[in-house]
């Protein structure tokens, strides 16, 4: 339980920063000021300034927004497409839909995800939207597989049988009876995919394939100032630790939620 709390605190700090940045940041980051660049932490700039003299705290807050938005929407895509696919596959177990869904899943899993993300951005150009798509695609099979597995075991339960005897269709049963019972599983997996999404976004924007300037993103902050780490170490530590702590928070939350919500799903969720 301590883990859950610690995780929740870490996550709320960064989510809070991201939300706050919608209405307020300490400094305008469009303004560059070369005279102030590469300064270490100080009272006016608690996290220092970057190579254009911009306030790092403001950059981190705005970067949190980018990372969280990208990862969240990517999870949304994964759930939005993966859950129906998984439910359908389970409802028609062994049928051709099931076969296609599962083979498709295997195929997506077999593609090297980072390479495909790079290809996608080579085709459509680099942007936050394309980063979302690239990460989202690889979330689909995760949820499809999870939901199918969970649903299959539910289909054998007595109350589902009862519903079928009562004449309810497979689609209705899936939505009314199966899905609600999978919520916990989805919350737990969603948290984990969310944290993986943050890491993936950081990696993609680190190689220059995420959100484009002037929109800040943590990965690009690290990449842009790489050559200056030996002059100003805070440029490495501030964004790097932000990624680390956010991901750590989400993972701790995921583990905690898993224990809290349903000890029985532990096996399935893994």
């Amino acid at each position: 339980m301590k883990g859950l709390w610690l995780g929740a605190i870490l996550v709320s700090v960064f989510v809070g920063a991201a939300l706050l940045s919608l209405v307020w940041v300490p400094y305008d980051i469009i303004q560059m000021n070369m005279a102030q660049r590469l300064q270490g932490p100080s009272w006016p700039h608690p996290l220092g300034t970057d190579h254009y003299g911009r306030d790092m705290l403001s950059m981190i807050m705005l970067g949190a927004r980018t990372s969280i938005a990208v990862a969240l929407v990517a999870v949304g895509i994964g759930m939005g497409l993966g859950v129906p696919l998984g439910l359908t596959a389970a409802a028609r177990r062994g049928g051709w839909i099931d076969e296609i869904v599962m083979r498709g899943n295997d195929l997506i899993f077999a593609f090297p995800s980072l390479l495909i993300a790079i290809l996608i951005t080579a085709i459509f150009g680099a942007s936050a939207v394309n980063a979302i798509i690239a990460i989202g695609i690889f979330n689909i099979p995760v949820f499809a597989r999870l939901v199918r597995g969970g649903a299959l075991s539910l289909w054998t339960r007595d109350y589902i049988l009862a519903a079928r005897v009562a004449g309810k269709g497979r689609a209705r049963i899936s939505i009314e009876h199966i899905l609600p019972n999978l919520t916990n599983l989805l919350i737990v997996q969603g948290t984990i995919q969310f944290s993986l999404g943050i890491l993936a976004e950081a990696g993609l924007s680190y190689v220059g394939l995420g959100a484009q300037p002037p929109v800040p993103s943590w990965g690009r902050m690290l990449a842009d100032t790489q050559t200056m780490y030996s002059i100003a170490l805070h440029l490495a530590l501030v964004p790097g630790l932000s990624i680390l702590l956010t991901v750590l928070g989400l993972n701790l939350m995921g583990d905690g939620l898993r224990d809290l919500l349903d000890p029985r799903v532990r096996r399935a969720a893994r």
Binding site: L199, G203, L222, I243, L244
Partner: peptide
């Protein structure tokens, strides 16, 4: 937990 959360390119640098 830390190991999973560290972005490996950052750790590499």
């Amino acid at each position: 937990q830390l190991g999973v959360a560290v972005p490996n390119f950052w750790f590499a640098m």
